[in-house]
Design a protein around this nucleic acid. Structure first.
Lengths: 204, 204
DNA sequence: GTCTATATTTGGATAGAC
DNA sequence: GTCTATCCAAATATAGAC
């Protein structure tokens, strides 16, 4: 069902609308980004928007889909394998988290998530499942393996995972806030590594 | 300079406006809470609002002042005294944090803070200084004392503080999100205590 | 101090010519 | 597909009668 000949191509108007919307939503949130602004950013009239999207909501849904599509490639790997090595498992996880934190595209989506977190129930639920539950699950598996192999002290894997994850999230939030104001993140640049070091000393 | 005879009293219209505004701002944020809604909640016309406040912004400023006025009574106490006992210091800190997390008034203000965090630069700065720097400072002092007295292993006090604080914040955020949707926080009710237990085992 | 009336702006959305 | 024109609703804010 081709809506129009260029809708999926780079130069297509639909693509331009999406791009402009993404930028504006990530900066001002849903309410703050008006159809007016989107249209003027693209360089077309508001009415032209509606040839490509039913309404503002539909644009937002397409943009917000990207929030949880970050390629956190951990599940593809063999968790068990890496967990047997102990610290490298934590390091790998933290470095992927760091990568996403500083990746411009993921950073924007994280902003949007934070802006809408308390205004959008669906995003809240996705936040809980995708940002929390999913990560706790992966980490728990790793910690469980480490315990089985006496690499770390015995403790509830869920608790350890919660502890490990919460700090990663907090660093990410701080980085995002600083970068939003174009402030330096120098003091936080090695925080992920420091976290891994401290944490490993804590549990080994 | 009495603006009017009842402005500061409970039954005063100004007080009613403030109360309604507080509730609406904490639920819908600055943009989402309209002067219309505030007026209708109070039971007066919009124009009457302007007899008490210059504009919407002024109301918001008065409400948002309360965000960082939570009576975190730690500074009044002798940190050194408590830190010498080790774990009780952490426990006390975490329990105060928990109290604030579950306190209805503080919960509302925290909501507002989260909603506006990425839309209001001043709140972002205050968040960094009041929610982060200030707490890291208090904790660092405590950890430093503990190290001096060989109660815990030697490590950068700032790092330890960061680690300890980040989890508290994360729990608070989760609790706030769950309660926003009227969901049960049972699974998190003892998370603060678990955090203290885990953490103390980590550093002692 | 509150009300009615009104000004003004902004935002989402549609109809119909081109 | 885009434009002009237009509509409608919502929101902030002011003026002036009571």
């Amino acid at each position: 069902m081709p809506e129009n000949t260029t809708s999926n191509k780079k130069g297509g108007t639909k693509e331009k609308i999406l791009k402009a919307s993404r930028a504006l939503f990530c900066e001002y949130g849903y309410k703050g980004a008006s159809v007016r602004k989107i249209a003027s950013t693209v360089g077309i009239r508001e009415s032209a928007i509606y040839n490509h999207y039913k309404n503002k909501e539909e644009i937002f849904l397409e943009v917000s889909k990207e929030i949880f599509s970050s390629p956190f490639s951990f599940e593809n790997e063999d968790i068990r394998e890496l967990a047997l090595k102990g610290k490298p498992f934590l390091h790998k996880f933290a470095m992927q988290y760091k990568l996403i934190t500083f990746d411009k595209s993921n950073e924007n989506m994280f902003r949007l998530l934070m802006i809408e977190l308390l205004q959008n129930k669906e995003l809240r639920e996705q936040f809980m499942s995708e940002f929390h539950d999913k990560n706790v699950k992966v980490l728990s598996e790793g910690f469980f393996v480490m315990m089985q192999n006496n690499l770390i002290r015995s403790y509830d894997p869920m608790i350890i995972s919660y502890e490990f994850l919460s700090t990663l999230f907090y660093i990410r939030l701080q980085v995002t806030l600083l970068r939003f104001d174009s402030l330096s993140t120098n003091s936080l640049s090695t925080q992920f590594e420091k976290h891994v070091d401290f944490f490993w000393e804590s549990i080994k």
